[in-house]
Design a protein around this nucleic acid. Structure first.
Lengths: 248, 248
DNA sequence: GCAAAAGTGTTAACTGTACACCCATGA
DNA sequence: TCATGGGTGTACAGTTAACACTTTTGC
């Protein structure tokens, strides 16, 4: 590191990132595995997060920490909210772990959570810093996490579901070309319920944000599906304005 | 103050409260006026807010601070989010003011904003602490505030509008008995647009959360309106579940 | 009798939802 | 030929949105 102005960590404020991905089957979330002895595997897993520097804003801090811990760069993050019960760090294993990495392990910390959606295939997370690994986990299979991260995850998921009903956000999870069946599976994975195929297609197509490609699926053992891509212009327009009624 | 355990202020985390009220005409917000010399009146006005204690959770801190500054007690608050650009305290008048009241006036502060809705008639705000007065201001007339409070206010208002379309939240702003005309005015004040009377009534009544009273308006120089009150049971049910489609 | 807000229905367009069969492909 | 997911249309119910006149009261 060059002799830049000293980056001073703020002992009381951290950021945590809830990064969702989709593998055409299930909704996934990116978690880091921490060093140390944890009886329960769930306690070893945590959202990528760390203290902020005094000189950076919250969003940049979240982006920096995300990159440091997982290698993911330039991710669009959206704030979920602030979390910070005084007894947030009540689990003994978490206390021990903090003592091993922090200058001021007993400080009251409030954390600002952010969430994002990425295409899993675009990012190969790589652990750095105090994470021993960074991996995708099926959201449905997570029952607890370190600190209060489980409740942060739940709330981020709630917010994602809400957002999905008013904006075409979820499309971030899709690769550049995709089939309507894949898109529907994404909606189903996020909302946690199955949808009617015909109604889904009609509704999605009416938004006028998809453009069909010439290309079709190949080497699938069923009728090959049409590929689609986004009509970027209309897509962005709709992202800003939102739609009034888009409940499934 | 008794010899309780020492309450230690956290120098880096504050809370701010956006309290909305309705006077049957306009949407109001509760602001405190600060001591000191401010060229611009808008810079004298601020949201009620202050640093948190290390021992209290964020919500309790917001409730405590609100009571200290305005006398309002037991208000249900809802989190808007965290705000905290490093240059949040960029205005010279704000810096000076902080030096006059804070032990550590140059610390980086991030603030967690909360909002609420109250019946103006129920609360007579009384200034305390460093507020010289606490008063209701017409939201439409506010063009700027101290610190970054103006953008916090805008965001709280956006959230209130969104909430209003999915839950019967706004009803908190009404007194125990009210007319449908008054209720409609509240919706119009919050949403900032006028609504069709017949459609409004039909929609609201179908929610089945209002109960007509025997009583009618008196001494009004037009046809007296029926008074209504809430059907508490159905109202609470609907508050929890929300409604799918309630756009105006 | 006039001003002011209350109260009241209908229609047309649109939206949501439920539902079943044939098609193209690889194995 | 079978298994798999792709692709398609219709009918009914419910919801939205636009719109105008009569009523009751105080002055």
């Amino acid at each position: 590191m060059k002799a830049e102005k000293i980056q001073q960590l703020n002992p009381n404020v951290s950021v945590d990132c809830v990064i969702f991905g989709f593998d055409f089957e299930q909704l996934k979330v990116l978690l880091i595995e921490r060093e140390g002895n944890f009886e329960d595997k769930s306690q070893r897993l945590a959202l990528p997060g760390d203290l902020i520097f005094n000189s950076e804003n919250l969003l940049s801090a979240a982006q920096r920490v995300l990159e440091e811990l997982t290698g993911l760069k330039d991710i669009f993050l959206k704030q979920v909210g602030a979390f910070g019960e005084p007894d947030r760090i009540s689990k003994e294993t978490d206390k021990q772990w903090l003592r091993s990495i922090r200058a001021n392990p007993d400080a009251r910390v409030i954390t600002i959570a952010y969430y994002s959606l990425v295409q899993i295939t675009d990012y190969a997370p790589q652990a750095n810093s105090f994470a021993t690994s960074a991996n995708w986990y099926d959201v449905r299979e997570i029952e607890d996490l370190a600190f209060d991260h489980y409740s942060i995850l739940r709330q981020a998921l709630d917010q994602l579901r809400m957002e999905l009903q008013s904006r075409p956000v979820g499309f971030n999870l899709m690769p550049p070309k995709f089939t309507l069946g894949q898109l529907q599976k994404m909606y189903e994975a996020i909302l946690g319920k199955s949808l009617d195929k015909r109604n889904f297609r009609r509704k999605i197509l009416k938004l006028d944000i998809l453009a069909p490609l010439e290309e079709k699926q190949q080497e699938v053992s069923h009728k090959p599906a049409q590929y689609f891509m986004f009509n970027e212009e209309n897509y962005n327009k709709l992202r800003e304005s939102g739609f009034d009624n888009f409940g499934f």
